[in-house]
């Protein structure tokens, strides 16, 4: 088929992949450091979207510039969700840090269910429209057939987040502490790293990127409800596993592979099997590379 169609699908897949990546980062970072699959992570994404909606909705009643409203809403949402991430860790995971891993996992599922129902009860079960705050960018006019303003924004933000995160982890003191904690928590503690702070920081960063994903997707799709975190969370989790859970570049790569597979699968074969393609890819990769695309092989200690 023609090239323009191919590019549309490619960019659609990349957009989707970017959203998955922003969520998957949180899964993979948390797993890398405390070996916990944080199932409440999808809910953080949903809370980010809701906060942006509430702030954006309230401010759009004033005569402020829509772009400024969007930026304020996004920042508030990110800070607020980061606070959620921090609090959840302190309440639900920290007391269980030395308990069997299964207990913390169950705790995570509990938090997830709690947050969904909390938003359902405190907000509404209805789908809510998100105000259209962003203007069409003029310079995208020539490519508007396959790249919309919101898609462009999603791709750009994801790229910026990836770069910042790489810098943070590779070149800052906190990054070094994170890597040390991921390798060996006890040893890190012995050499004077404040492990609790590192773990809190991980949750804050992971929640912030997920919230950013939530804000971006609401502007792209234009509507949300309390349940959006579930499917997005599951997909991002699949992406993280696909790329090798615990590995940050892996999560990003896995997300793009997943997004592109779904997009091309829908475009060239049939959307009836969109989810099936996603999971076929997962199964194939795990058969040939059980630790994921970029995952480290775990050597069993005898």
């Amino acid at each position: 088929m023609n090239l323009e169609y191919f590019f549309s699908l490619f960019l659609g897949g990349m957009t989707r992949g970017s959203i998955y990546a922003l969520i998957a980062l949180g899964y993979t970072m948390v797993y890398g450091i405390i070996k916990l699959i944080n199932f409440a992570h999808g809910e953080i994404y949903m809370i980010g979207a809701f906060t942006a909606l509430i702030i954006g909705g309230a401010l759009s009643l004033t005569s402020m510039n829509p772009v400024a409203i969007f930026i304020i809403a996004a920042i508030v949402a990110i800070v607020y969700s980061a606070a959620y991430g921090y609090t959840i860790e302190k309440i639900a995971y920290k007391p269980l840090r030395n308990a069997p891993r299964l207990s913390a996992l169950i705790s995570a599922i509990g938090v997830s269910i709690f947050l969904q129902n909390y938003v359902l009860l405190s907000q509404t079960s209805d789908f809510l429209p998100f105000p259209n705050l962003l203007p069409e960018f003029g310079f995208l006019k020539p490519v508007e057939n396959f790249l919309s303003t919101t898609q462009f924004l999603i791709l750009l933000s994801t790229a910026v987040v990836m770069i910042l995160l790489t810098i943070l982890i590779k070149f800052t003191k906190m990054g070094k502490a994170m890597r040390a904690t991921a390798q060996d928590q006890q040893m890190a503690q012995l050499v004077g790293i404040n492990v609790n702070r590192v773990i809190s920081m991980t949750f804050i960063i992971g929640s912030a990127t997920a919230a950013l994903g939530g804000v971006l997707i609401t502007t792209h799709i234009g509507q949300i409800n309390f349940y959006i975190g579930f499917i997005a969370g599951i997909k991002a989790f699949v992406a993280a596993v696909l790329g090798g859970i615990g590995s940050i570049p892996g999560a990003v790569l896995g997300s793009f592979v997943l997004g592109l597979t779904e997009s091309f699968g829908t475009g060239y074969i049939s959307s009836d099997y969109e989810d099936a393609f996603a999971f076929i890819i997962l199964i194939l990769i795990l058969i040939f590379k059980p630790s994921g695309l970029l995952g480290r092989k775990e050597n069993e200690k005898v």
Partner: peptide
């Protein structure tokens, strides 16, 4: 409930 529908819309 998918994250977006851009692929099917392109199609």
């Amino acid at each position: 409930g998918a994250v977006d529908y851009s692929a099917i819309i392109n199609k």
